[in-house]
Every structure is written in C-alpha cells, then in structure tokens.
Design a protein around this nucleic acid. Structure first.
Lengths: 182, 182, 182, 182
DNA sequence: TATGAATGAGCGTTCATTCAT
DNA sequence: TATGAATGAACGCTCATTCAT
C-alpha cells in the first residue's frame, strides 16, 4: 500500500503543479479532480492547502537548485551561467507560476520551501561567482540585483506572452548589460 | 444628484485602488467600507467585481499614459525615456499591483482597459522611438522586448522586496544593456 | 428593513432553541432551514456557531432570571421558592437542553451568557434566602448544594422520561429533604 | 490468534472509555491511536461508532450492576443502599459520562446495553427494597423516583463541578428526604 | 438613488466507513 | 487478521451578487 500511497502523492503533486501553475486561487477540489483522487486523499497527504502549495513550491525550487548544481559542476563558467538564466526564464514562460516561486524563494513560506529557496539561491550564487571570475559577467554586479533580474526576466517573459523571438531579444539586451564593460 | 453619484464613484475607485493594491484577494465589502458607502452602491457603479478591477486598472494605465505623454512633450529624449522607465519601476515597487496591471494590459480585460493599455504602450513607444533617434537607446532594440523589460523590471523590483539601492543597481545593469553598443 | 431583520433574528433564535434543544450537535443548516432563511442569514446575525449557541443560552437564562425575580417580588417566600424549583424542572423536562443551560450557567461560555447566568443565580439565591428566613427551607442548606439539586433534578427529570407523577414524587422526596428538620 | 483479537478488543474498549469519557465528540481515530491499533481494527471489532459507544456503555452498566450485587449480598441494607448511591454519584463526578450512561439505560441504545441497564436497575431495585424493609429508606418511595434521583444527583454532581464538600452536603439533603418521616 | 439584509454556491477541512494489501 | 490509505458527505464559514425599503 505504501507504493500506492507514494503514487498518489506524486499524482497529487503533479496535478497541483499544473493547477496552481494556472492560478494560485484554484481550489483544492480542482487538484483532486485532476489527480483523479478523492478530496480527502489530498488532505491526507497535505493536511492544509498551504502545505500543498508549499510542497509544490519546494519541488520547483529543488529542481532549479539541481539544475544549477549540475551546470556548476561542468563546462565553461560563462556558458553555465547564461544557460541557467535562459533556462529558468524559458520554463517560467511555459509554466507561468515558476516565477512566483522564484519570488517567494526569499520570503517566508514554511521551513522546507525556505530551505530549498536558500539552496537554490546559493547554487545560483556559485554560478554567478564563477562566471564573474572567468570574466563572463561584469565583476561589479552583486548577487542581489542579478537575482532580481532573473526574477524580473522570468515574470516579464510570462506576462507579455510567450513569443520566443522576443524573449531571446529581451535576454540579449539583458546579457549585454551583464557582460563586462569594455 | 449626478454630482453625488460622481463623487461616490471617485471615492469607490480610490478605495478600490488602495484595497486591491494591498491584496488582489480583498473583498468588495472591504472596498465599500473604506469608501464609506454601502456595498450595493459599489455594485450600482460597477455591476461586477471584474468591472471594478478593470476600472482601477484603466485608471492606472491612463495615469501612466499621461506621464509618458508629458515626458515626451518636453526635454531630452534619453532623459525622458529612462526617467519614465525608472518611475514606472519605482511605483511598481511601492504600489505592488501596478505590475499586474502592466502585465494585464496586453491580455483581454475588457474594452476600456484594453484601450487604455494600448494608449499607454503607444505613448511609451513614442518615448522609445525618440530616445533611439537621439542615440540614447540602441537602435536595434524593438518595442516588444523593451516593453517586456519594463514589465519584468517592475515585477522583479516588487517581488524581491524594495531595497532602493539594489533596485537602482538592477536598473543600471539594464540600462547598460539598452544603451548603444560602442 | 430593520423590522425585517429583527423579525429574522427572532425566527432564527426560535429555530435555534428548538433545534439545539433536541441536540447540541445539530448543524447550523438545520437551524436555517427551520427558520426558513438562507444559511448566510444565520451567519450574518450570529457570526459563529458558538455565538448562536450562546445567544440561545443567554435567552434561556434571562427567562429563568425573570421568572425568579417575578416570584421573588410577591407572595409567600416558601411557595415562591418551591414554585420556581418545580417550574424549572418542569420546563427542563419538556425542553430537554435547558438543563444543559443551567449547568453551563456556572462555566465560561462568553460574556453575555455568563452575565445572564450570574443574574439568574443571584435571583435564585434571593428566592432561597427569603425562603430560609421564613422557615420554609432548612437554614443549614447552602446555595451551592441547593443549586446542584436544582440542576440535578432538572437533568434527572429529563433523562428518565417525562412521567409527570414520577417527577412530582421525586420532587416531593427532594422537598422533604429541603424542609427544616423537626 | 483469538487471544490476540480478544486482547485488542479489550484495549480498544479501555481506550474508548477514556476517550469518550473526556468528550463524547471524540473521533474514532483518537480511540485507535490511544489503543495503539489501526483504525480498521477498531471497525473490525465494532462495525459502527454507535456500536462502540454502546459497548462502552454496556461495560459501565455491568460494572455498576456488579457493584450493586456485591453490596446487596452482604452487610447492613441501609448502609449498602446509601453506599451504592454515593459511589455512583462519586464516579459520575470523576468520570463525567457515566451519568449519560445511566440516563441512556432507560432509552433505546441497542440490545446489549438495554439488557445491562435492566440488570443494573434490577440490582439497584433489590438494594432499595431491602433498605426499605429494614427501615433505612421511607417505604412510600417507589423505584421510579428513587432512580430518577440517582440519575439526577449524578448529573448534578457532574454539571456543577466536583467540589467534594458541596457534593456531600447535596447528598445529605437528599438522604434526609429519602429517610422515613418520623 | 443609496442602503444593508438576504442569498446560495463554493471553500477548506473533518470523519465515519470501505477497500486493498 | 491487522493495517493504513481512500472516500464522499457534511460541516462551519465567506463572498459576489440580488432584493426590498
């Protein structure tokens, strides 16, 4: 039965990610319906709606953290940094609420999410530091504003629709600003 | 009696701007209370909650449009452009939901808001065009990505808290990206 | 409209008295249905279920207090005391939950009910004191145990069904205990 | 395996007595947790919650019956009667819900409980008859009102808090009523 | 026209009971 | 047989909207 339960937990999380991706105001019932389980099952796995939201958020932040760590482990520092940046913005564009997750990473939504947010920010900070040391990102840029740009670009990409060319041109401008001044 | 009605409309709109600025999830009752009118009066002026939200949005977009037009009418084109950009981001930081309004300007929230959004974007486009002609903004940047950057910067400033220094450094990076390449 | 509202409030209270008289575990919906109003109307008048229960309780305690005061104002002290005692027990028998109200009178169910309970107990205390002074009730009985007997008799009458003759014989035994020893 | 099952049954009953003694509104889950078994095990032994409640009630009534029988078998009839009366009231005060059990004994809660209630009442009737024959209780008191007084005193003791001195004085008054008139 | 009372659909959550292991 | 997961009906409560004054 543990296998069943784990299965259901996964399905609920997946459903929640989709549903809350569309709108944070969605109801727990919607999640249950999409997951194909009864509503009480959702509450068995996540005792309150807030905890469910937090679990989704945590998952996203962990995925981002993992991606950052993978990229940090290998390859050219500059490529790794810009690659991660673009990837985050791209996913935000298609998944809508990931940007909200990024924004929430700094605030206070429960211990797990806070921890995951912290780790993600640390991994991104590492990426940035290495890119700066290698000369791919201007040395005078501090973490705070680079992170703000990451969040902003994600939201900007989401908000204005998903034209891929526009998004790439937006990033091109942004990256020009991030590269060292000659 | 028409003066009375217009008065009430104003007060409701002002109250709504404040209330929804704090939280989009606020209730219509809260608006009525802050405006000092009965709830039925709110619904007489704005038959649905969506229409009330739209009216607030429209108001904000019109203000932005007016600001853009004023700046376009006088002074150095580059200064006008960057001034407007900074001002929008600053207000987004303090008023929280204006970014949502900006984002929504492109989508489909009723005729009035769409119209106001269009006019605001045209006024901002004018500002951009003049700044490009004067050499203050790179010529190869198209409206779409610059607008996306405006929206993104507003949201980024809102999401990550309102540290003024960080916000300014973020904008400095962004403006470096927007200036012509040497 | 105030007349309408007051009317509804009355009807809700009456319905609640009946419904909760049968079972404290009854739902707020049941009250609304019996009162013939929508459920939101119940909550408009009594913001929480506890407040509704408290209002019913307060009403009952006030009625009891008024009865005690009326009886204290006129007639033979002994008659007044035993009359009140019998009346309370009789009503408890027919209305079931009034005994619970009596029991709760000493505990802590909100300010209004506590106040009403206090006043009722004071009025009953007055009745007792006068009866003792007149020699109709033994002088060595203290308020606490007499009140406990009142509560107990009410509950006993309720619990064992409502046979009137049994109830009267039960009270006769009890009154024999309360009268001065020869 | 039958020994296991009987063991579990006992533990569940013990847990249920404790849990429902504290609050009738307690959940079946609470019982299972305190008993240290899964919830399904509770339902295997007691197919519905009502049946579980009835089993607890039956147990209590049987204990009362046994006490009455023991007291009837030996010693002074008057002492036995008043001893039993006081003991029931004392336990009601400390165990809260036993009064409800007593009250329910007359009503219609399933065959087992009805039978146990009947037997308890018969044993108490025996106690009463012997006390009356010995002159310790007035001869004109009939079973019905004496039983009502037992129930009432139990509830009264429970409801008004458990001050031991008050309880004893209350019983003293009551016993004065029950003793033969000189 | 302005008001506040009334409404019911919907929300988050709990719980007795059933099912699958 | 014992378990814990799954279920859906029900609860207390809120809110956008309508009605009656």
């Amino acid at each position: 039965m543990r296998a069943d339960a784990r299965d259901n937990r996964e399905r609920i999380l997946t459903a929640a990610e989709q549903v809350f991706g569309r709108s944070t105001a969605a109801s727990t019932d919607d999640v249950a319906k999409l997951a194909g389980v009864g509503i009480a099952t959702v509450f068995r796995h996540f005792p309150t709606k807030v905890e469910l939201l937090e679990a989704v958020l945590t998952l996203r932040l962990q995925r981002l953290r993992d991606t950052a760590r993978e990229l940090a482990g290998a390859g050219d520092p500059g490529t790794a940094f810009y690659e991660f940046f673009s990837q985050v913005v791209a996913e935000a564009g298609s998944k809508l609420a990931i940007a909200e997750a990024l924004g929430a990473a700094g605030s206070a939504p429960g211990e797990h999410a806070r921890q995951a947010g912290l780790e993600m920010r640390q991994a991104f900070g590492e990426l940035l530091a290495r890119a700066q040391r290698s000369g791919a990102v201007r040395a005078d840029a501090q973490f705070a504003e680079v992170y703000a740009l990451l969040v902003g670009a994600s939201r900007g990409a989401t908000a204005t629709g998903l034209d891929l060319e526009v998004r790439d041109r937006m990033l091109a401008v942004l990256y020009d600003g991030l590269r060292p001044r000659r």
